[in-house]
């Protein structure tokens, strides 16, 4: 699971949970694999994300890579920033661990890089 995915996941489908966002990450195995850097691609993704959530998630697993907690308004022209953002968004992967619902504490395991967000019938809204 890349952090870009974490940015889009919520546990609000759980009964009694209102926002369920962001999920906390506990990573036991983190892998960093090289992905081809493309500045236009990464610039297009950044405005569609919740940056604060991304930064905190990266920081919580020890991979903030020196990124600033807030985005510079002219980030498209800042190559150093884009390269770091590229790494955090696309190269860092949580292979094993779990996600935790911020409201209910329900844990969702991550196995072989795949988060398990399945709920039992009794847990669904």
């Amino acid at each position: 699971m890349k952090l870009i995915t974490h940015n889009m996941l919520t546990s609000k489908c759980l009964k009694g949970v209102i926002t369920g966002y962001p999920l906390a990450i506990t990573a036991t195995v983190v892998k960093v694999s090289e992905v081809e850097y493309n500045p236009e691609f990464i610039s297009r993704i950044i405005p569609k994300l919740d940056w604060e959530v991304l930064w905190k998630a990266a920081d919580s697993i020890g991979h903030n890579e020196g990124l600033p907690p807030t985005i510079d308004p002219k980030f498209e022209d800042n190559e150093e920033f884009l390269r770091k953002a590229h790494k955090v968004l696309l190269e860092v992967e949580v292979e094993e661990g779990y996600l935790t619902c911020p409201e209910s504490g329900r844990q969702f395991p991550i196995t072989k890089g795949i988060p398990n967000m399945l709920l039992t019938e009794a847990e669904v809204q």
Partner: peptide, 18 residues
């Protein structure tokens, strides 16, 4: 191909309109 895979019922655990 770079693909992110989630074990999920349909798209029930995604935040809005992405």
């Amino acid at each position: 191909v770079m693909l992110e895979t989630i074990n999920m019922d349909l798209g029930s655990c995604f935040i809005g309109n992405k």
